[in-house]
Computed example of a mutant assay.
Amino acid sequence: MDSAALLKKIDQLPRLPKAVSELLEAVNNDKSTIKEISTKVSQDPLMSARVLRLANSSHY
Rank of each mutant, 00 (worst) to 15 (best):
M1T: 07
D2K: 08
S3D: 07
S3R: 10
S3L: 11
A4I: 10
A5H: 06
A5L: 12
A5E: 10
A5S: 13
L6W: 11
L7V: 12
L7K: 12
K8G: 10
K9Q: 10
K9D: 12
K9T: 11
I10P: 06
I10A: 14
I10N: 10
D11E: 12
D11Q: 09
D11W: 09
D11N: 13
D11T: 12
Q12F: 05
L13A: 15
L13N: 07
L13M: 11
P14F: 04
P14M: 06
R15F: 03
P17G: 15
K18S: 09
K18C: 01
A19G: 09
A19L: 06
A19F: 04
V20I: 15
S21N: 01
E22H: 14
E22L: 15
E22A: 15
L23G: 10
L23R: 11
L23H: 08
L23A: 11
L23P: 13
L24I: 13
L24S: 12
L24M: 14
E25K: 11
V27Q: 05
N28Y: 07
N28T: 10
N28Q: 08
N28M: 11
N29Q: 04
N29K: 10
D30P: 15
D30E: 15
D30S: 15
S32C: 03
S32H: 03
T33L: 08
T33R: 05
T33P: 09
I34L: 10
I34K: 07
K35L: 12
K35V: 14
K35G: 14
K35P: 00
K35Y: 07
K35D: 13
E36D: 09
E36H: 03
E36W: 01
I37T: 08
I37G: 04
I37M: 05
S38W: 08
S38A: 14
K40P: 01
K40I: 01
V41G: 03
V41T: 03
V41R: 01
V41K: 01
S42Q: 10
S42K: 06
S42H: 08
S42I: 01
Q43P: 01
Q43N: 14
Q43K: 11
Q43M: 11
D44E: 13
P45V: 05
L46P: 00
L46A: 07
M47R: 01
M47Y: 00
M47Q: 02
S48E: 02
S48I: 00
A49H: 00
R50F: 05
V51C: 11
V51L: 13
V51A: 12
V51Q: 08
V51I: 14
L52P: 00
L52N: 02
L52I: 05
R53K: 09
R53Q: 10
R53S: 12
L54T: 04
L54E: 09
A55G: 00
A55K: 01
A55Y: 02
A55P: 00
A55C: 01
N56S: 07
N56A: 08
S57R: 03
S58Y: 02
S58I: 07
H59L: 12
Y60Q: 04
Y60K: 05
